[in-house]
Amino acid sequence: MSDPAVVAADEPELEQIVTGKQDKPRSLGSDAWHELRRKPTFLISLILILIVVAMALFPGLFTHVSPTAADLNHARGGPSAQAWFGYDVQGSDVYARAIYGTRASLLVGVFATLGTVLIGGIVGIVAGFYGRWTDSLLARFADIFAGMPFVLGAIVIMLTLNAPGSNPGETRILSQVVFSIAVLSWPVAMRIMRAATLVAKQQDYVKAARGLGAGPLRIIFRHLLPNTVAPVMVYATIALGANIGAEATLAYLGIGLRPPVVSWGVMISDARDYVAAAPHILLFPAAFVSVTVLAFVMLGDAVRDAFDPKSR
């Protein structure tokens, strides 16, 4: 604002210039892909994520040591040529456990994100499309969940589902963790979807479709969804990272995954009493969580920029 003459300088003409006449049909999606392939942050995050996924699918490729094999002689042993990341309290190989822990952590992240996006997306598009009292009602409903502190909400849900002292099975506890994360974080996805829907609904192409006699389902699936899904996908990539972190939080608090399941959260939780004496037990799994979360956040950023070049 220090410049009186330059109150705004948009480029009305740039779009005209770029509106070239290419020979091949190119959708917005392929445009975005074209953009992404040339971004180092995207490539780095993609490689990291592919490695993490490979660890989850085929842990045997990365280590021959069993994650459950324990030799108390090695307990709390530091990193060595034999065990790169050292040994934990039980004398298990930290590297092997971190590799095998990937699967549970990633499963929680993927399914919690799927749940978040599905619940949030559906509620958001319905609220945005129908508007009026439907919107008011759903928005207030979402506010109730959004207003709840995550940790408190998760403790309440997990303790309600499992009486203290009970020992639920692996699948059961995994789905409970997924459920509590999804239930507590869907309002964010809902708001993003609702906002995108409100914008898309105002566009003339929706008016034109209504004028042609298109019903609500056609308008939602054909016209709104393809134009609103991008911001939700961006959120989903970032949320995936955050949800892996949330898994670790719940495990650390003792209400999430627990042994004999191996996950990064469980490993961090196991290390809590030995931080000073044997920091490597904590640091290595924590580094796995941090790097994975960072990779997803970077991916989300890159995808967002590619879909919306104006945000740069």
Partner: peptide, 17 residues
């Protein structure tokens, strides 16, 4: 009865051929 709208940039769904 059909309509032709003003803005050629927003009256066509960008995700459709």
């Amino acid at each position: 009865i059909q309509i032709v709208l003003q803005d050629p940039y927003t009256s066509l769904n960008p995700r459709m051929t």
